[in-house]
Structures are given as structure tokens and as C-alpha cells.
């Protein structure tokens, strides 16, 4: 995985609460054996009508969204299915960070494993971002801070180990494989076997 230390971008705002992974990537696009190319179907049913025409009122279809890498969502973003295809689709589309007041557990885990930065902010920061779409923000992954226009700096929580892996570009599987001696010992010494 590539190291990620800093993201600077304007924001796209999707204010709806509880945006689930079925909306991020509908299940019918999961019939793939690859992780590539899913950005084409990101928010498919919100982005396109039944004839495949772009819906002009959807935020991703508006000119202001071009080149934006930070998505601000309503509370409880990414709830529902465990499909990692959801963060894959966001990343493939060009989104590098998601900001909300709450981000669902499995989606957050999946995002961190792929270099999509999940950022939890307080209600007033969230409200500012929701009501000011398109503002330029800066995300400093090393110091876990989000800088708003005007220089306000907001710290966001992120697991220290996940941050270390993101900043150093470390694959967590490699770390797990280094624990193999302990895993083997655990298997040999446990009082019962599954």
C-alpha cells in the first residue's frame, strides 16, 4: 500500500444520514472477482437514472465535484453490509477521505485497510462542513488533524496502529505474518482444539 500522509481537497457533501453500503455500491455490482474499476458504479442508483443517464441534481454529477477527494456524509456513514467493494469503489472514483459524525465499524475497518481515511468530527464541525459544500480542507494523517478554511484545526480519532500503517505504507498482513511463531505456539498450547 502507498504511504498516505496528507490530503488537500475541496469537499463533496452528501448530507443524508445512514448512507449504507448498498447505496455506495449496489449489490448487483458485486458479481466480480476483481477489485478494479468499481468507481464507475459508485453511488450508481443515485448518480444515474434507469436509462443510465446522469442525474443532474446528484452532487457527483455537478461540475464543482470534479477533482474533489474528500466526501462529507451524514451521520452513520457506511452502515450495513461488510462489502469492501464500497471503499474500493470510493477510492477508484478518487475519494481519499470520508468525514462524518459517525462511521460504521466494518466500513471504517475496511477503509483503513485500503488507504481511505475515515474521519469522525464533532457535531459543530460537521454542521459547518454540511452547510459549506466545496470548501478546501487539509487532512494531516501524521498528526490526525483536519484543517478547515480560516485555519481552524480539528483533531480526529484514529487508531495509532492503523495510522502508522497508513503513514508508512505498511501492509497489515505482513505484520500478522511476523507473529507466526506466537500463532503456532498458541495453537499448540491451547487447552481445546476447534
Amino acid at each position: 500500500m502507498q504511504a498516505i500522509t496528507r490530503i488537500q481537497s475541496r469537499t463533496i457533501v452528501l448530507p443524508t444520514r445512514d448512507i449504507d453500503t448498498d447505496q455506495i455500491l449496489p449489490a448487483r455490482f458485486l458479481t466480480t472477482t476483481s477489485r478494479e474499476g468499481l468507481g464507475a458504479y459508485l453511488f450508481n442508483d443515485l448518480r444515474f437514472d434507469a436509462n443510465g443517464q446522469a442525474r443532474p441534481d446528484f452532487v457527483l454529477n455537478q461540475a464543482a465535484a470534479d477533482g474533489c477527494a474528500v466526501l462529507v456524509g451524514g451521520n452513520n456513514f457506511g452502515c450495513g453490509s461488510s462489502r469492501e467493494h464500497a471503499p474500493w469503489a470510493l477510492l477508484d472514483y478518487g475519494i481519499r477521505a470520508v468525514i462524518s459524525t459517525e462511521i460504521a465499524d466494518i466500513f471504517r475497518n475496511n477503509s483503513l485497510k485500503n488507504g481511505l481515511i475515515p474521519i469522525i468530527v464533532d457535531a459543530s464541525t460537521h454542521e459547518f462542513l454540511l452547510t459549506n459544500p466545496g470548501v478546501e480542507v487539509e487532512i494531516d494523517v501524521v498528526n490526525s488533524t483536519l484543517t478547515l478554511p480560516g485555519g481552524t484545526v480539528v483533531e480526529f480519532p484514529i487508531d495509532g496502529f492503523a495510522r502508522y500503517c497508513l503513514v508508512e505504507g505498511i501492509d497489515q498482513l505482513g505484520y500478522l505474518q511476523q507473529q507466526m511463531d506466537d500463532i503456532q505456539t498458541f495453537e499448540e498450547q491451547r487447552p481445546w482444539t476447534p
Binding site: 469492501e84 466494518i106 475496511n110 485497510k113 485500503n114 498482513l173 500478522l176 507473529q179 507466526m180
Partner: peptide, 13 residues
């Protein structure tokens, strides 16, 4: 529930 990257972790370790 886990994601596909974690499925890989469990398969391997």
C-alpha cells in the same frame, strides 16, 4: 463480519 482484506488475513494466518 469482516471485509475481504481481513478474509485474506484469516486465510493466510
Amino acid at each position: 463480519g469482516i471485509g475481504t482484506t481481513e478474509v485474506g488475513h484469516v486465510l493466510a494466518t
